[in-house]
């Protein structure tokens, strides 16, 4: 919130350079800032005084588009929605930063169509454990943290290389 006084009623979300930015405003602040139309371009940036999008990011974003559905990077940044399954390959670069910030990893390790499930790769296991360790420390669960630390140790060999599971 900008004024930190009234209840926020205008919520802006924008994806910029792979990061999600959110601004919450009350109606009055929104009017003062001229944000009656939350669909406007790059408003969140302007409000946060992060500066207007630079020319370089604009030019790369208008060039890229998905060959299958015609969605442009600008469309995607505005709506946050992709047009078709092929967009994931077309916008891989933009997506990779975005996915990293919103998820626990950038690689799928869950269910697959058909019954087959992928084997657990040792390095994936390690990443997972490291995340769990950080979380356990964050909530001050030191017992759990110690247990995870030992499991990480046992996954790594003496020289720090990851052993296969």
């Amino acid at each position: 919130m900008i004024c930190k006084q009234r209840e926020a009623r205008v919520h802006l979300t924008q994806i910029d350079q792979g990061k999600i930015k959110k601004v919450d405003l009350c109606e009055q602040c929104a009017k003062e800032k001229g944000v009656d139309d939350p669909t406007g371009y790059a408003l969140a940036d302007l409000l946060l005084n992060l500066g207007a999008p630079t020319e370089s990011t604009r030019s790369t974003s208008t060039v890229t588009s998905c060959k299958s559905c015609g969605l442009t990077a600008t469309d995607f940044k505005k709506s946050g929605r992709l047009g078709c399954p092929d967009c994931y390959a077309a916008f891989k670069e933009i997506l990779s930063g975005l996915l990293e910030s919103m998820h626990r990893g950038t690689r799928h390790i869950g269910k697959r169509p058909g019954a087959g499930r992928p084997p657990v790769v040792a390095s994936d296991q390690l990443t997972l454990l490291q995340q769990q360790l950080a979380e356990a420390i964050a909530v001050e669960n030191y017992e759990e943290a110690a247990r995870i630390r030992d499991r990480i140790k046992s996954l790594k060999s003496a020289d720090g290389r990851v052993l296969s599971a």
């Binding site: 946050g80 992709l82 399954p85 994931y88 390959a89 997506l95 919103m102 799928h108 697959r112 169509p113």
Partner: peptide
């Protein structure tokens, strides 16, 4: 479905 990203959805 992609091996890397799993089930592909309209919203990432």
């Amino acid at each position: 479905f992609s091996d890397e990203f799993g089930y592909l959805t309209a919203c990432p």
